[in-house]
Design a binder for these strands. Structure first.
Lengths: 118, 118
DNA sequence: GTGCTACATTGACAACCGTCGATGTTCACA
DNA sequence: TGTGAACATCGACGGTTGTCAATGTAGCAC
């Protein structure tokens, strides 16, 4: 309900107009929601730690059994966090025998990084 | 409880050892928590929209009255989201008369971007 | 088969988050 | 002084999240 742009109520102490054409460009809500999901997956120190370890593991990937103890969380909790990262598209999982390897998805990470360039 | 690294239980289908020295490097929890707070502030499409508009406003900053209607949320909700962005260090606010201008903090954004380089 | 290991899923709980209406506060102007 | 506008804060509500114990599932070894 801002009628400021059509009136002359700019304060005398500040001659510049209140509104430039700020919100004039279109904004893709679906795209923002997809980005937000990615950032939400990063919004937890435990998940940042897991991601850091998976990144450090390189192309071979990281075994879940090596992630549990350093994370300081229970096995179900780690499994939950890995699922969050997986559903956010930040990592992929691969089963080898009884073990599960997790790999980074660098393109997804790059996408989130690029969105911060604005 | 992974004793795999001290035993010889590697599956025969996969000769590579399960564990490289993955979690061996130190991990700064306080630093990760600080980063996580930044990403949490980005983990909402409404806040991404607000941030986008504030960015588009440039050096002059964006007036709150111009952010409410494009966001599609009520004035208290927008005020709440701006508070979240402020407390995450992503924006700063400045009062001019009855109006409030919000400015971007590019260094904080750069910090979050750099953390994704791993 | 039995038993063990690695990992995922379920269920429960407290804490947190997004949203809005109502109210408070500060400023400008008459 | 009074009125209105811009923005913040409060209170409440439903939904989501992080956590763990318990349980389920699948593979390996004997």
């Amino acid at each position: 309900m801002s009628t400021r742009s059509t009136t002359t109520r700019a304060p005398k102490v500040e001659p510049v107009a209140c509104c430039a054409t700020v919100g004039s460009t279109e904004f893709d809500v679906a795209d923002a929601t997809e980005l937000a999901k990615g950032y939400a997956a990063l919004a937890d120190p435990v998940r940042l730690h897991l991601l850091s370890m998976i990144t450090a593991a390189g192309a071979g990937g990281a075994c879940v059994c090596d992630l549990i103890e350093p994370s300081g969380r229970s096995q179900p909790t780690v499994s939950h966090h890995l699922k969050v990262l997986r559903e956010a598209g930040l990592v992929t999982s691969e089963k080898r025998g009884t073990w599960a390897w997790y790999h980074l998805v660098p393109t997804r990470l790059a996408q989130l990084r690029a969105a911060l360039d604005d």
